[in-house]
Simulated assay, not measured.
Amino acid sequence: MDIALIPARSGSKRIKGKNIKPFLGMPIMAYPIKAALAAGCFDKVVVSTNSKEFGEVALSCGAEVIFRPEELSDDHTPLAPVIEHGIKELQGQGHHVERACCILSTAPFVRPSDISKAKEMLVERNVGAVFSVTSFPFPIFRGLKMSEDGTVSMFWPEHELTRSNDLPDGYHDAGQFYWLDAAKFLSEKKVYMADALGFVLPRYLVQDIDTPEDWHRAELMYRVLQESGEVEL
């Protein structure tokens, strides 16, 4: 079976109750749940949480729930052990998990069509992982660092005179979803496998939400994307 696994722990410090905080009138966790359900490519959509309250919200949005221990729910827990726990919990219930897609709980811009297209990439290319990426808006090889006294210098001074259009594009994790071949993932226990492919998203669909300012910016972005039809929920 193919599963969507949405990690949603309680205990966020910068935005209290972040995973169930209303985002334009709906708990933010509801957006990835609804996107996963609408994608039509999952046998189960499951929220992994340490919170009874979060679990109840997940159920009301149409997801199933598994509870994970507190040692996998602190600020320093990486994503891979949470995914591993979710897969093994379902395996322990007698399910054969062939593929898992971890969708982040605070990803309101995730689109059902992108989820399903990324699955096609995973299957057709027979790789261990496909995850969302987006490009940096400026060439990373022209990046600057700043010392304690405020002076700046280039990370790669050899590119000071290189034209921007002669430099390769740089990409970063877009923080939306991670499709995984379950067997390969359980063997390697990491998301960034050697054969991982990037599913490229436009920058206007990507926004980390870590602070109240990020949250406000994301809501403004979402309203515009709704009006233009770029988001699907």
Rank of each mutant, 00 (worst) to 15 (best):
K119F: 09
I33W: 00
C101P: 03
Q93Y: 11
L180A: 04
R125P: 05
G143H: 08
E213I: 10
K88H: 07
E213P: 03
Q176L: 12
A36Q: 01
M1S: 14
R111N: 05
A30Y: 02
S116Q: 12
D214L: 05
G40I: 07
A174C: 08
L225G: 07
W156Q: 14
I28W: 01
E64H: 08
I87R: 03
K18R: 09
L220D: 15
A36C: 10
V110N: 00
G150L: 04
Q176F: 05
G198H: 06
D43W: 02
R14V: 12
F138D: 13
E227P: 04
I66A: 03
G150V: 05
D173W: 11
A118S: 07
L197E: 08
H172D: 13
L144K: 10
F67A: 01
M26N: 12
K190A: 07
T134E: 09
E160T: 08
S12A: 15
F42R: 02
P168K: 11
K190Y: 09
P108C: 05
P69T: 07
F136N: 14
S113E: 13
S113T: 12
W156D: 12
D114T: 05
Q226I: 09
S187I: 14
V45H: 00
M221E: 08
A196R: 04
A4V: 02
H95A: 10
A38W: 00
G94I: 03
V224H: 13
L122T: 04
L161D: 15
K184P: 06
S147L: 14
S116M: 11
A4I: 01
R14Y: 08
R9E: 08
T49H: 01
R125D: 13
S132M: 08
S135K: 13
P78Q: 06
N126E: 15
D210K: 15
E232M: 04
V47S: 00
E219T: 03
M193V: 11
P168Q: 09
K184H: 11
H96I: 15
H96S: 15
A218E: 05
L59M: 14
G143N: 12
M221T: 08
F23D: 01
V65M: 02
M1C: 13
K16P: 04
D181G: 06
L37G: 03
F138M: 13
S73F: 04
E227S: 11
D208F: 14
L24K: 07
P202Y: 06
P212V: 04
L205W: 02
K88E: 14
E232D: 06
